[in-house]
């Protein structure tokens, strides 16, 4: 029986700029079903953080409830973590981010956690443009509670018992674009080559970065007739572009044979390189992104890649002009200036 992962690693593992090998970013051994897409996304997070040279103690993982929300236990054991209440991860993220703007916030949620019970929270975290990356591991069902249809299950999709979903699905990516999200991407757990650069870019984006990742549930929603199965997704997937995240000061080495290459610069000097496949689509234009998603849906395609991005977005701290420093680095006298100051403030409102 092996609920323990061996300690040995490949002896030639490369080190990142901080001197860590990738195993430093691993977590506990997953208890999810064998073959669950969520585990692949977790592996993508590990690889992205390794490649981004992130000091694990500078990152906080936040999640709600669900199989997806359990995954933060399975990566980044050396990082902070908060497993919150069902659908309430955005509130916790908002609070944490306001208190300490220096951490990288990685929110992990499910389609149930986001599109059902957490919908109210989700729309507001977008609206506020909290500086975080928000990953939905979207399997079209409530995996943890044995596979009931979720709000992202497509109309006409069949579940494991053969029952067809009669409701229209909520398309989280369109919704995010619609609501003014400043970074919206879509991907597939089975395509790490695309997913990892998206996670890296999302973490670097100075505002709310949303990635909706189709992540098949092998146990409850990988049957014939499901639109979230490995087979269906592979047959219907279309990419807007191939994506490369290019960190600051790195020479661009990727070369493409044909097509249009677009570079989106980010404020810190890094950039995203897109090799566009979809024509008539501009990732910097919200309307065009919207149309591309709508069109693909009409064609029964699942559009993946970076969909929309506003590199000049202002996050909540900028909007509210809060202090530049995390609260825990401020002195008590600054944080609590005393009753005299309170009186004065109250005076100003009179």
């Amino acid at each position: 029986m092996s609920f323990i992962r061996p300690k040995f690693r490949h002896p030639e593992l490369p080190k990142n700029a901080l001197g860590y090998t990738v195993d430093y970013y691993e977590g506990a051994l997953s208890t999810l079903c064998a073959g669950c897409g969520h585990d692949s996304i977790g592996a993508g997070v590990v690889q992205a953080c390794f490649e981004m040279n992130i000091e694990p103690h500078r990152l906080a993982k936040l999640s709600g409830i669900g199989c997806s929300s359990k995954t933060p236990n399975y990566f980044l054991s050396n990082s902070h973590g908060f497993n919150s209440v069902h659908g309430r991860m955005p509130s916790v993220a908002t609070g944490a981010n306001l208190a300490n703007r220096d951490l990288i916030y990685l929110g992990v949620s499910g389609d149930g956690d986001t599109a059902s019970i957490g919908m109210g929270q989700f729309v507001h975290v977008i609206r506020r443009n909290i500086n975080m990356i928000y990953i939905v591991m979207n399997n079209g069902c409530y995996g943890l509670t044995k596979g009931q249809d979720s709000a992202t299950s497509d109309n006409g999709s069949k579940n494991k018992t053969g029952v067809m979903n009669v409701y229209e699905s909520i398309d989280l990516a369109s919704l995010a674009i619609e609501l003014g999200a400043t970074f919206v991407a879509q991907s597939f757990s089975g395509d790490k080559a695309q997913l990892i650069p998206l996670i890296k870019a999302g973490m670097q984006h100075p505002g709310f970065a949303f990635i909706n990742v189709i992540s098949p549930c092998v146990t409850f929603n990988n049957n014939v007739g499901s639109t979230k199965s490995y087979d269906y997704v592979r047959q219907h997937i279309e990419a807007t572009s191939t994506v490369d995240f290019v960190p600051e000061m790195t020479e661009i080495t990727t070369t493409y044979k044909s097509g249009v290459t677009q570079k989106i610069g980010m404020h810190d000097g890094s950039s995203i390189q897109l090799h566009k496949i979809a024509q008539d689509w501009d990732p910097l234009d919200r309307q065009s992104a919207m149309n591309a998603v709508k069109l693909s849906k009409k064609n029964n395609e699942i559009l993946t890649g970076l969909l929309f991005m506003d590199p000049d977005a202002k996050d909540l701290h900028q909007l509210l002009q809060t202090t530049e420093k995390p609260l825990n680095s401020l002195s008590q006298s600054l944080l609590c200036p005393g009753s005299e100051m309170l009186k004065q403030i109250n005076e100003d409102f009179r």
Partner: peptide, 14 residues
């Protein structure tokens, strides 16, 4: 094989 990557992700020695 359904190419789910689970084996790739779990293998301790890549």
């Amino acid at each position: 094989c359904i190419e789910c990557d689970a084996c790739v992700d779990i293998c301790p020695t890549a």
